[in-house]
């Protein structure tokens, strides 16, 4: 389970979908990096990712990691957002996870991602929801 400190450091990305845009070549990096992999630039501006996109690669996890037993089968997908940035996210609100297909339009919603047992912290972020 994540420590409170690590989780806290990632709030801008997890809560507000803040990404880094390379001021030299314009590439948007999520999560942000120290060096741009495209042009090796080191200066970035903060941009907020759009919350609409489509499914590029769906899958369904049937043997879940600890903490996700009650959410099995667990749909996960690589989603390409409308600005071209791709990220891997859980997919929420699927009555039948096998219905998730390549190309399905989705949007990102703020959801609880996991919790540290009964007494620990709650961790929030974004999941994809099919439109």
């Amino acid at each position: 389970m994540e420590s409170p400190a690590r989780s806290w450091r990632e709030y801008p990305q997890r809560y507000r979908l803040e990404a880094a845009k390379c001021t030299k070549c314009g590439k948007v990096l999520y999560p942000p990096r120290v060096v741009c992999p495209a042009c090796h630039g080191r200066e970035f501006e903060t941009v907020t990712l759009p919350r609409d996109g489509h499914v590029v690669a769906p899958t369904v996890v049937r043997v879940p990691p600890t903490g996700f037993e009650e959410e099995t089968p667990l749909p996960i997908a690589v989603v390409e957002l409308s600005n071209g940035v791709r990220l891997m996210v859980q997919v929420a609100d699927m009555a039948d996870p096998m219905e998730l297909k390549i190309g399905d339009p989705v949007h990102l919603e703020f959801r609880k991602i996991q919790q540290d047992g009964e007494a620990g912290l709650l961790f929030y972020g974004h999941k994809a929801v099919r439109d």
């Binding site: 959410e71 859980q90 929420a92 703020f110 959801r111 609880k112």
Partner: peptide, 16 residues
């Protein structure tokens, strides 16, 4: 609510 929806998540979406 789903397992991943609570007062906080719903408040964020309504707030947005």
């Amino acid at each position: 609510p789903g397992k991943d929806e609570d007062t906080i998540t719903m408040a964020v979406e309504a707030g947005r």
